[in-house]
């Protein structure tokens, strides 16, 4: 009988890493403080003790160097690296290795390279970590070709999607919202995988579709629950992966409800939210009964003060207001 327990998002990720490392000796974990320290979020805890310093490698602060090392190791087929980038904000010092190298090698080499690697990184505001430690930059990764981009919202999804990502033969950017690490949810003890490109309808509804990612899924669910008491039926769709995108599930929901609110913690322009809005108007225009509403932070850096940051992050109130406006 399958054992299902309540564990945290971080523990679920840890189980996925442990499972993959136990199964495949090519899987190695690399990053800053991922060894003895277990990662600053504790996601790699215990792996160093279990698999040793060769396979759980602490790196110097050389993000381009160690991400590039992972790319090269993957290109040889000798390893399947899983790299931790402490904050997605640090991407700037290493982006080339992801978008120009990992993401393009297969294409440039005529389909001969396989870059089987995962970059695990963290996003999200809400901790007064200010402008360089709080961003949600998934749109940058989904803008460029060749990278798969995964963003789980629950412990269950986190485990199944990380297993799929590590077993996938393409570079996968696996984005973990810092605000989710401590949330608990039911997770089977057994390993299982969730296919990339399969959205999950987190809550069924009839009148409005909310498409939301990561932490915003939970805020949207909160709003949906509140509105249900008033008899308003809201559907919440979590795409789970941005690339590939489960277009069918999103469009089917929009066709059903005729109303769309997109909620995302990324910046507003050239964003995930505007991408989904464009999808709706170009592929489901006839079904739309109201203008598409977008709820994102403003186009400013993330502020430090709790008083400002709480205004910056999309709140349940703002989501609720958007839903009421399209009703």
């Amino acid at each position: 009988m399958a054992v299902v327990r309540e564990i945290t998002f971080a523990q679920a990720l840890n189980e996925a890493l442990d499972y993959e490392m136990s199964k495949d000796p090519k899987v190695v974990v690399m990053g800053e403080d991922v060894g003895l320290y277990g990662g600053i979020y504790g996601v790699t805890a215990g792996l160093y003790e279990k698999y040793g310093p060769e396979r759980v490698r602490d790196t110097p602060i050389a993000e381009s160097g160690f991400i590039g090392t992972a790319v090269g190791a993957a290109a040889t087929g000798l390893l399947r690296p899983v790299v931790e980038l402490m904050f997605i904000d640090f991407l700037g010092v290493a982006f080339d290795q992801l978008y120009n190298q990992a993401g393009k090698m297969r294409y440039m080499f005529g389909g001969k390279a396989k870059i089987s690697m995962v970059l695990r990184t963290t996003c999200g505001a809400g901790f007064s970590a200010a402008a360089q430690h709080s961003q949600s930059l998934h749109a940058l990764f989904s803008h460029v070709p060749g990278l798969k981009v995964v963003m789980p919202s629950t412990p269950y999804d986190a485990k199944g999607l990380l297993i799929s990502s590590i077993e996938d033969d393409d570079p996968v950017i696996f984005i973990e919202h810092k605000g989710l690490y401590a949330i608990k949810g039911e997770v089977p003890e057994e390993p299982y995988s969730i296919p990339l490109g399969e959205a999950d309808v987190k809550r069924e509804g009839k009148e409005v579709t909310i498409v939301a990612t990561a932490a915003m899924v939970h805020k949207s669910l909160e709003v949906a629950e509140k509105l249900e008491k008033e008899g308003i039926s809201v559907e919440v769709v979590d795409p789970r992966s941005i690339v590939p995108l489960d277009v069918d599930t999103i469009l089917n929901s929009i066709k059903k409800t005729g109303k769309l609110v997109v909620v995302d913690e990324g910046y507003p322009r050239a964003s995930f939210a505007s991408d989904i809005a464009a999808l709706a108007v170009s592929k489901a225009f006839d079904s739309l009964k109201a203008p598409v509403k977008i709820v994102t932070p403003p186009a400013t850096p993330v502020p430090f003060s709790p008083a400002l940051e709480s205004e910056w992050i999309p709140s349940a109130e703002k989501i609720e207001k958007a839903v009421r406006e399209v009703l």
């Binding site: 381009s64 991400i67 590039g68 090392t69 290109a75 040889t76 000798l78 390893l79 290795q97 190298q101």
Partner: peptide
Amino acid sequence: GGIPHAVGAGLGIKL
């Protein structure tokens, strides 16, 4: 851009 890839190949060889 390719310099770290050789490092990665080296890591793969070693492990």
